[in-house]
Design a protein around this nucleic acid. Structure first.
Lengths: 349, 349
DNA sequence: ATTAGCACTCATTAAATACGAGTGCTAATC
DNA sequence: GATTAGCACTCGTATTTAATGAGTGCTAAT
């Protein structure tokens, strides 16, 4: 059965009210509700509510209580009922101060977002197939070589390599040329045994040293490929006692501190990304166990080169979806612009 | 008035019992306590307890309850009563896997410690006056220079520098020589206007570019000097409901997430470091507000070069001091050894 | 189709009661 | 004089009971 116009209005009123107060909302409250032009007695509302409950949009926590939305109710609200907050062009310019390092920028995004919304937030660095742009080997002291690897997107990784053979500057220069010849433009997958073999033959007497250097470099590239996640405002979760008892909440917090679970979540979301880039997971829909009592909203931002990163918000089901969605939209736009402008935000180690 | 032997025994029994159970301990419990050779009736214990209370070592939460230790009681316990756990040479070797990067090592220390003790932990990187060991400038692409700065202790910092003048490899080489000549061995404080002026005169036509490069390098050194703090197990705090209500606890958690407050704490402790390197702050003794309901135990570890770092544990006053102190002692010893062995743990960005 | 009215449910709160762990004190005992 | 048995007393916690009131479902009137 489809919802008629009046039922929609009532459902919307119920949810709006519940989001605001957190209390189950009763028929009398709705009948006095002025925001919509409904003027019906509580009895009528009660009948409609009974229908809505039968259809699964709302439930009563107990017999003599008002109604609260079900996951289905929230879903309908998010999809069809909630009109997004019009962007009042709030001083969004002041949201982010200029920062030149990717890492700091993203940390700040997480922080600002957590601060503005009072929910827990997470931000991932953009993910893409990273290729080597430049390698620089330098001799730091007698037995340490420093390898600096710059990969696409100006992410820089360093690796100290211990060598036990004395090398002079000539040698290092040779290595530099050799490494750059072979590795420039290569991605992690390109570096295979054959390539290593080829380089070894070319390096002649230095082959054994090359071994060490190589493994160091591979490590570093591997490192650069790792999905970094920045979180903030985890403690905001404690502000919503409806998320169950402390033990549940603290488990959730641990997940948040650990981050490894989060990457799972993030990957899930990137797979499902649709046109708008905004996704809402309500309760059971969440791809991660332990978050069934929460809602998660994620957004995808893009770098000009096509790399994508994710911004996510975790909060109670009773979340200000309107605000969250519009905030996320603005933020991704802002990020897109930042990346467009400064075409190479640096990631200095 | 001094505590006689019997009072000491009783106090120790009370505290030991309270640490274990978390419940106020009554006279009957102590009279039945078998660990000590006390065999006294509860009435006698009651009299002694009244004395101990008068002297301020214990209190009753309410009239008809047993006694719990006061801060003074804990202090006496830690200073004089508690004999430290004998190191049973538990498989401490397995505590830390080998990691080559300082940052990862310290993160792991925090994690392992939190995991072993079930308290919140924090670890700072060793702090010392960092001097430049080596600088390498490389041309990454047309308008980006990469500055790699290695400071004492093999901490590596990178900085992308945007230049708008076309530079060839010759030029970069010149810069490298110039920078290293002046900056090797210099600390942040050494780099002053005079030095900059001198370098500018030497760099001739390139003076304006040098400006940019310089500010980048100063940034990086500054960065290297920042006191980094790694935390773990913050959520463990939630396991101790005696730390007051959620709102208090969550404030504490926020402090922990923020870390800036923690550095204050850490600095306090390094100032007071005594011979053993272990310090215990009980309740009111804590140098940071908001932690008055907790106890904090810190330990100092040393690198061969003399640099010192701090490991700290935050938990309820009812903390297993014995275990914590001995764990920290072992850990600092282990860390000292690791640093001694691999004389240059790397800090790759 | 809407609404007024009423009986009913049930979470929440407050008050009343019981329980028991533990104390302090006194008088008897070693 | 130190120790202990015994007992009255305190007070936090748990349990019971009753009162309150928000909100419902249903029925009959509009």
């Amino acid at each position: 059965m489809e919802l008629d116009e009046r039922k929609k209005k009532i459902l919307k009123a119920i949810i709006a009210n519940y989001l605001e107060t957190g209390e189950p909302v009763g028929s009398r409250t709705i009948s006095k509700y002025t925001d919509t032009d409904l003027s019906l007695s509580s009895a009528t509302i009660r009948n409609e509510m009974a229908d809505l409950e039968e259809m699964g949009y709302i439930v009563q926590p107990h017999t003599s209580a008002g109604r609260i939305p079900t996951d289905k109710g929230y879903r309908f609200y998010v999809d069809s009922l909630m009109e997004e907050k019009v962007d009042v062009e709030e001083e969004k310019s002041s949201l982010l101060e200029r920062v030149d390092r990717m890492e700091l920028l993203l940390k700040q995004v997480a922080k600002v977002l957590a601060c503005n919304t009072n929910y827990a937030t997470m931000v991932t660095a953009p993910k893409y197939r990273k290729t080597v742009k430049f390698i620089q080997l330098s001799k730091v002291d007698a037995d340490n070589l420093l390898a600096v690897i710059v990969v696409d997107g100006n992410i820089i990784k360093n690796k100290m390599i211990v060598v036990n053979t004395e090398l002079d500057n000539e040698d290092v220069l040779k290595f530099n040329i050799l490494l750059n010849t072979f590795l420039q433009g290569a991605s992690l997958e390109d570096i295979n045994l054959e390539m290593i073999q080829m380089m070894k033959t070319q390096s002649g007497e230095y082959a054994p040293i090359l071994e060490d250097i190589f493994s160091g470099i591979v490590d570093a590239i591997h490192d650069a490929n790792e999905l970094e996640i920045y979180t903030s405002g985890a403690t905001n979760i404690l502000k919503y006692p409806e998320l169950g008892d402390i033990s549940k909440t603290s488990e959730l917090l641990e997940k948040f501190e650990d981050k490894s679970e989060l990457s799972h979540l993030i990957e899930e979301t990137t797979n499902k990304a649709d046109g708008t880039g905004i996704q809402v997971y309500i309760g059971e829909e969440a791809p991660v166990q332990d978050m069934k009592d929460c809602s998660i909203v994620t957004a995808t931002y893009k770098m000009p080169e096509g790399a994508e990163g994710t911004i996510g918000i975790l909060g109670p089901k009773r979340m200000d979806y309107k605000k969250v969605v519009s905030t996320l939209k603005n933020l991704t736009i802002e990020l897109d612009e930042i990346f467009k402008k400064s075409k190479g935000v640096n990631n200095d180690g």
